[in-house]
Simulated assay, not measured.
Amino acid sequence: MSSQPASGPSGRPAIRVDLPLRRQEWDLLVRLPRTVLVAACAGDKHVDAVAGVEAIAAGQRSRALLVRGVVAAIFAEQLTDNDIDATAAEPTTVLVDCGHAVRLLAERLGPDVALAYGEWLMDIAASVGRAAWAPGRIRLGGVEIQLAERRFVNGIALELARALYR
């Protein structure tokens, strides 16, 4: 399959990448980072969704060409929050999708690409809880992390480990 947005986030022509993926598999990879962000926010007014968007954009610096391509596709689509299905953003559904995506990438493109994509998803989920102190948060290395968010990030890590080390 050939996956290519018309232009990259900076307006430059996007790199054409031929991937061994079906359209619905590519769509999952493109949809999942935003769904992870929405699930990590989970309507909590103390989270920093802007940090999540910045974490998505940080994928442009990934060592994996696939992650950079997914970032380009995300910003080319310019989805809104209304485009994310609320049932798809349920944490348990998101974790299942994360595991499926990482297994798919490990099988088709190898464990390095799968690991880079999975770690990027974890960064997105972890980034949203770095807001001001509130009850139910812990402090790790100078960063405030909501306990529920930590469980969600750990869930993504568990799915990543299961997919890569089965």
Results as ranks from 00 to 15, higher is better:
residue 1 M to F: 03
residue 2 S to T: 12
residue 2 S to Y: 12
residue 4 Q to C: 09
residue 5 P to G: 07
residue 5 P to R: 12
residue 5 P to F: 14
residue 5 P to Y: 12
residue 6 A to F: 13
residue 7 S to H: 11
residue 9 P to H: 08
residue 10 S to F: 03
residue 12 R to A: 10
residue 14 A to I: 12
residue 14 A to Y: 11
residue 14 A to T: 12
residue 15 I to Q: 15
residue 18 D to S: 09
residue 19 L to S: 04
residue 21 L to F: 15
residue 22 R to M: 14
residue 23 R to S: 14
residue 23 R to Y: 13
residue 26 W to M: 12
residue 27 D to Q: 10
residue 28 L to E: 14
residue 31 R to D: 10
residue 32 L to N: 04
residue 32 L to P: 00
residue 32 L to S: 06
residue 34 R to L: 08
residue 35 T to A: 05
residue 36 V to L: 05
residue 36 V to K: 07
residue 36 V to N: 09
residue 37 L to C: 05
residue 38 V to A: 10
residue 38 V to H: 06
residue 40 A to P: 15
residue 40 A to S: 11
residue 40 A to Q: 03
residue 41 C to T: 08
residue 43 G to C: 05
residue 49 A to Y: 06
residue 51 A to L: 08
residue 52 G to A: 12
residue 53 V to F: 10
residue 54 E to F: 04
residue 56 I to N: 09
residue 56 I to Y: 07
residue 59 G to K: 01
residue 59 G to S: 02
residue 60 Q to K: 02
residue 61 R to P: 00
residue 61 R to C: 03
residue 62 S to L: 09
residue 66 L to C: 09
residue 66 L to F: 10
residue 66 L to M: 10
residue 67 V to K: 00
residue 72 A to F: 03
residue 72 A to D: 14
residue 73 A to C: 13
residue 73 A to L: 10
residue 76 A to F: 14
residue 79 L to S: 15
residue 81 D to H: 11
residue 82 N to Q: 13
residue 82 N to A: 13
residue 82 N to W: 14
residue 83 D to N: 08
residue 84 I to G: 04
residue 86 A to N: 12
residue 87 T to C: 08
residue 88 A to Q: 11
residue 89 A to G: 12
residue 89 A to M: 08
residue 90 E to Q: 15
residue 90 E to G: 13
residue 91 P to M: 08
residue 92 T to L: 11
residue 92 T to Q: 11
residue 94 V to N: 06
residue 95 L to R: 05
residue 96 V to S: 11
residue 101 A to F: 14
residue 102 V to P: 03
residue 105 L to T: 01
residue 105 L to V: 02
residue 106 A to M: 04
residue 107 E to W: 05
residue 108 R to D: 06
residue 109 L to M: 11
residue 114 A to F: 03
residue 114 A to H: 02
residue 114 A to T: 01
residue 115 L to D: 15
residue 115 L to C: 14
residue 115 L to G: 12
residue 118 G to W: 01
residue 120 W to T: 00
residue 121 L to T: 02
residue 121 L to N: 01
residue 121 L to F: 08
residue 123 D to F: 03
residue 124 I to W: 07
residue 124 I to Q: 05
residue 126 A to R: 06
residue 127 S to I: 01
residue 127 S to N: 04
residue 128 V to I: 09
residue 129 G to N: 00
residue 129 G to P: 02
residue 129 G to R: 00
residue 130 R to Y: 01
residue 131 A to E: 06
residue 131 A to C: 08
residue 133 W to C: 02
residue 134 A to P: 00
residue 137 R to A: 01
residue 138 I to S: 13
residue 138 I to P: 12
residue 138 I to M: 15
residue 140 L to T: 07
residue 140 L to Y: 06
residue 141 G to V: 05
residue 143 V to W: 05
residue 143 V to G: 01
residue 147 L to M: 14
residue 149 E to N: 14
residue 150 R to N: 13
residue 150 R to W: 08
residue 151 R to T: 10
residue 152 F to M: 06
residue 152 F to Y: 11
residue 152 F to I: 06
residue 153 V to Q: 11
residue 155 G to Q: 07
residue 155 G to A: 09
residue 155 G to W: 06
residue 156 I to D: 03
residue 157 A to D: 10
residue 160 L to R: 13
residue 160 L to C: 08
residue 160 L to E: 01
residue 161 A to C: 09
residue 161 A to E: 10
residue 161 A to R: 15
residue 162 R to I: 00
residue 162 R to G: 05
residue 163 A to I: 03
residue 163 A to C: 12
residue 163 A to E: 10
residue 164 L to Q: 12
residue 165 Y to T: 11
